[in-house]
Design a protein around this nucleic acid. Structure first.
Length: 939
RNA sequence: GGGGGUGUAGCUCAAGUGGUCAGAGCAGUCUCUUUAUAAGGGUCAGGUUGUGGGUUCGAGCCCCACCACCCCUACCA
């Protein structure tokens, strides 16, 4: 007779093969139809709130793996808090304004021959463009298993958002933070606009550096030598700076006399080809202060000034000062009363200005020369160098390799250029505190928790060193700065005006600023009882996009009822912000400054930071490398999802400590795929052995469980507690490590392997089997729950098949970890038993290698034990035999540890494969052991 | 050029205030199983903790220098 079908062999609908790429979209659809996100929020109504505020990605392009990492981490946090009973809403957002979209749209319009499109038209196109990408990115984010309020996100282009952003701006105006000034700012020539610090990327660059002779007035044949990497700024030169702390000397060479810094003489001599130079005498700082020089090609003179920022590491010790082209130059210029002279037009061409008499300015030959570089050369540089050569003012010219700021969009080198712009004054004295805003901000930083803790240094560094915030952009696609200009050209800006504009934006969208006439706008925005000048023009500038996203505390956190912490006066503050570490300078900072200035408090309580994606060589994933065939496939989220499935991607995200860099490689993903299969098979094993288990009827209470089951539940309880703590601390890689280890060791290698015999061969309804099923059921539920934030699809798939579950989705369930605890004495006994097992296994393996036996059940094992081990083993000999999985075990007291293996006696039971002496006692079942005979007759 | 971070077996992670702490899992090897079977069990092997110094009776863990990579920064004018 074939007894195989009398066994309780595993049965389940949970497939071994996941087929994630096909199955995940189905589950996603199931969730969508069920309104899972909404149901979760309803289920947690009244529960304590946990708010993670989303940093808005830019609504352009496909979702990059790095962006996917960020979103997945956020989702893991939200889901894990939800699981623990919090109401954790997730409102995704998108950053919709800005140069990349405007550039793309104008390009498209140009291609369609619509070069004459006006601002309002361009903006409508931009709006449509941004929304298109919001849709496409939304789909990609959802595919990752991220749950949220996807169809009610926050968009920085929404009229209500713009209105609240502008109201926040009004508060800043009211408190005196905002001013208009002419200062050097980053300027993108191709896009004809000022750029924010955060819109600048550093890249390697080769500059044409020149050593230039400035002829001293009244000292024949004597020159001050300056060095610059930007020859095109020389027409703007108004002074020369030296460092009073440095030593300078007169040097005679090639028949001329030069003044340079002592420390640099050697280097300069080599570069300029001074073969037999002589140091004539030192030049004191007092002496230098009296000197003036003739500009090399503009008919004017300048003076020398002491300045601490001049360094002696490179150059000549003298710095050419152009207050219109550098921040330090500008500051020095202000100090000594120089005009902020910037003879470069918006288009990046040299041009005279009204700051100086025309005759003192650049020669006609330079006018119109373009500063913009192509292949490391620019017309302006070439023309200036030609003039210098002509005038015998060029001492040396060489390529200079360094990293230089570039426009993030056009990838061209930016220029520093003084223009009239709107600024936020960072050192503004905060009304009511008497403290400079910068100090207030630094103080507030200490009230926020930064994870990892070095994050505080980053944000402090950013706030300490930042200049005033240039907030105006010469662009169309953005929130207009609601300012006007009077007949005299002076700006008109007040909080009341701005608030009225905000109301207008709220009603009609900010497009009104471009579609209506100045008269109409002024009529709508002019405050009642206005006594100031009347507006004749409106501002054409838009706000820096960092003001957009940085205003989300006002425009989102304070607006949405579901994001408030009821009963907390500061309840609008988010619990967590989570972005890449570059955002210390970016969104973390802009959000902090704006919320502090406008709302009076930081927008967040904890700021979490993650590292960046690097490839297998730990080099950053770069577009250029992609272009050179460095990657086989595009580094988009979708591509990885299509290859591995979202759950594997999520497990990969969880597997690494995200606080440092994240390695993305096929090898790594394949390894994680292995772990995924291990976990999946574990869940499958448990499910498949619960096919006939109804927790309502069959659950065995704690005291009735077998000791082994109590042991495993105790271990599992400890795991749950550790995993819960790891989630709490945002250490998901610890979750991964602990779970993977537990699944591989405690479950797969130990418990599951041991318990197979009971589950398959005991009578289906036997206490021992039901006891083990009780444990499996408990572990399966808990395991699904602790995996749910990471394996969002797989855990739900398993959960669905768990008998008697009280929630229809694991994501709705409440996870209460760390329930069962094994008594200490029982735990100690099991530790001893497993330690004996560990030492006995190799002995069994030796016998196997010697071909004495195949499976352990063919063995009889004799253990010689001493002391406590002997005691425990004797008291638990049945358990010990079971965990060794041998047919026969004999324990003998003795000395030390000896394990003797021989073939088991008796006969092999046809059903359970144990070797027993009681096989054949039943006439009905002559090939069965006594235990199986009972099992067969019961069932 | 400055600031911050990282660097432990092929891969991910561990190793309170320096003292059996060099460990785990995975992958790899050999092997047993056909009652989780495109699964499962067992066995073995793997690292002079980026490099070089130093402090100490004793250092992945403290100090110094250097190297590699990542992030931020500075118009080296």
């Amino acid at each position: 007779m074939d007894y195989k079908n009398t066994l309780n062999l595993p049965q389940t609908k949970f497939p071994m093969q996941a087929g994630l790429v096909q199955s995940e979209p189905k589950r996603l659809e199931q969730w969508r139809q069920a309104g899972l996100y909404e149901r979760i929020q309803e289920a947690r109504a009244g529960a304590p709130r946990f708010v993670l505020h989303d940093g808005p990605p830019f609504a352009n392009g496909d979702v990059h793996v790095g962006t996917a990492l960020n979103k997945i981490l956020k989702d893991i946090i939200v889901k894990s808090r939800t699981l623990r009973g919090y109401q954790a809403p997730y409102v995704p957002g998108w950053d919709c304004h800005g140069l990349p979209i405007e550039a793309k749209v104008t390009q498209e319009l140009r291609a369609k021959g619509r070069e004459d499109a006006d601002a309002a038209t361009i903006r409508q196109e931009c709006d449509a463009y941004a929304r298109r990408y919001v849709d496409s990115q939304r789909t990609q984010f959802q595919r990752l298993g991220v749950l949220g309020d996807w169809y009610n996100p926050y968009l920085t282009l929404a009229p209500a958002y713009e209105a609240n952003e502008v109201r926040l701006f009004a508060d800043l105006v009211e408190k005196g933070f905002v001013y208009r000034g002419k200062k050097p700012v980053f300027w993108s020539i191709p896009y004809r606009t000022a750029l924010a610090d955060a819109e600048v990327e550093y890249a390697d660059h080769v500059s044409q550096s020149v050593y230039v002779k400035f002829k001293l007035v009244g000292e024949p044949n004597t020159f001050v030598l300056i060095w610059t990497t930007t020859p095109w700024t020389l027409p703007a030169n108004l002074a020369v700076a030296y460092n009073p702390e440095l030593q300078y000397a007169y040097v005679h060479a090639n028949g001329e006399t030069y003044i340079v810094a002592n420390l640099l003489i050697g280097v300069i001599a080599q570069k300029c080809g001074w073969e037999n130079y002589q140091i004539i005498r030192t030049a004191t700082a007092d002496e230098l202060a009296t000197l003036s020089y003739d500009h090399p090609f503009c008919p004017r003179t300048g003076r020398l000034h002491g300045a601490g920022f001049v360094e002696s590491s490179t150059g000549t010790g003298f710095v050419h000062i152009a207050p219109g082209h550098g921040l330090e130059d500008y500051q020095l210029g202000l100090q000594i009363g120089l005009p902020i002279y910037c003879p470069v037009s918006d288009e990046g061409r040299l041009a005279p200005t009204a700051d100086l008499p025309r005759e003192q300015q650049l020669p006609e030959s330079l006018v119109g020369k373009s500063v913009l570089e192509k292949n490391n050369r620019s017309e302006a540089n070439d023309a200036v160098i030609a003039l210098l050569t002509e005038g015998n003012a060029l001492a040396h010219r060489e390529d200079y390799h360094h990293s230089y700021p570039h426009c993030w969009r056009s990838k061209t080198p930016i220029v520093f250029r003084a223009v009239d712009q709107w600024f936020i004054r960072i050192d503004h004295t905060v009304p009511g505190t008497g403290q400079p805003f910068r100090q207030v901000a630094l103080g507030a930083i200490h009230g926020v928790k930064w994870i990892p803790d070095w994050g505080i240094n980053r944000i402090k560094g950013a706030v300490e060193s930042r200049p005033d915030w240039c907030i105006s952009r010469q662009r169309t696609w953005g929130v207009p700065i609601p300012a006007f200009y009077g007949a005299d050209g002076e700006p008109i800006l007040s909080a009341d005006i701005v608030r009225k504009a905000a109301d207008l934006f709220e009603k009609h969208g900010s497009n009104v600023w471009f579609s209506q006439t100045t008269e109409e706008l002024w009529a709508a925005c002019r405050p009642a009882g206005w006594t100031g000048p009347e507006a004749v023009n409106r501002s054409q500038d838009t706000l820096d996009v960092w003001i957009d996203s940085g205003s989300s505390s006002r425009a989102v956190l304070m607006q949405r009822p579901e994001l408030q912490h009821p009963g907390d006066p500061m309840g609008w503050q988010a619990d967590v912000y989570l972005e890449g570490s570059d955002q210390h300078r970016g969104w973390f900072q802009s959000s902090l400054l704006l919320s502090l200035a406008g709302n009076g408090a930081p927008p967040y309580r904890t700021v979490l930071t993650h590292g960046f994606m690097v490839d297998e060589d730990r080099e950053k994933i770069s577009k250029s490398k992609q272009g050179q065939g460095g990657y086989q496939k595009p580094q988009t989220a979708d591509r990885y999802v299509q290859d591995y499935g979202a759950d594997v991607i999520r497990l990969w995200v969880a597997s690494q400590d995200y606080r440092s860099d994240i390695v993305v490689s096929e090898e790594r993903l394949k390894k994680v795929g292995e772990t995924y299969r291990l976990i999946r098979n574990t869940l499958r094993y448990q499910l498949s052995n619960l096919y006939d288990f109804d927790p309502a009827q069959h659950t065995v209470p704690g005291e009735g469980l077998t000791s082994l089951d109590r042991w495993v539940l105790g271990e599992f309880g400890r795991l749950e507690a550790e995993v819960a703590a790891a989630y709490e601390a945002y250490e998901f890689h610890v979750v991964y490590q602990k779970v993977a280890q537990f699944v591989a060791v405690e479950l797969s290698s130990m418990y599951h392997d041991i318990v197979k015999d009971r589950l398959y061969t005991d009578a289906a309804g036997s206490l021992r089997r039901r006891s083990t099923q009780t444990a499996l059921h408990r572990i399966l539920s808990g395991l699904s729950q602790m995996l749910a934030p990471i394996l969002v699809f797989t855990s739900d798939e398993a959960w669905e098949l768990i008998p008697g579950k009280p929630f229809d989705s694991v994501h709705l369930s409440l996870w209460e970890p760390g329930g069962a605890v094994t008594a200490e004495s029982e735990r100690e006994a099991w530790q001893i038993l497993f330690s004996i097992r560990e030492r006995a296994m190799p002995e069994l393996e030796k016998a196997r290698q010697a071909k004495l036996l195949g499976k352990a059940l063919e063995a009889k094992l004799t253990l010689v034990l001493e002391g406590r081990e002997a005691e425990v083993a004797a008291a638990h000999s049945a358990e010990l035999r079971e965990i060794l999985n041998v047919s026969q075990l004999s324990i003998e007291p003795g000395v030390g540890f000896v394990a003797r293996v021989e073939r088991a006696g008796g006969a092999k039971c046809d059903r359970c494969w144990h070797w027993e002496h009681d096989v054949g006692q039943s006439a009905a079942h002559p090939t069965l052991c006594a235990r199986c005979t009972v099992a067969v007759s019961v069932s």
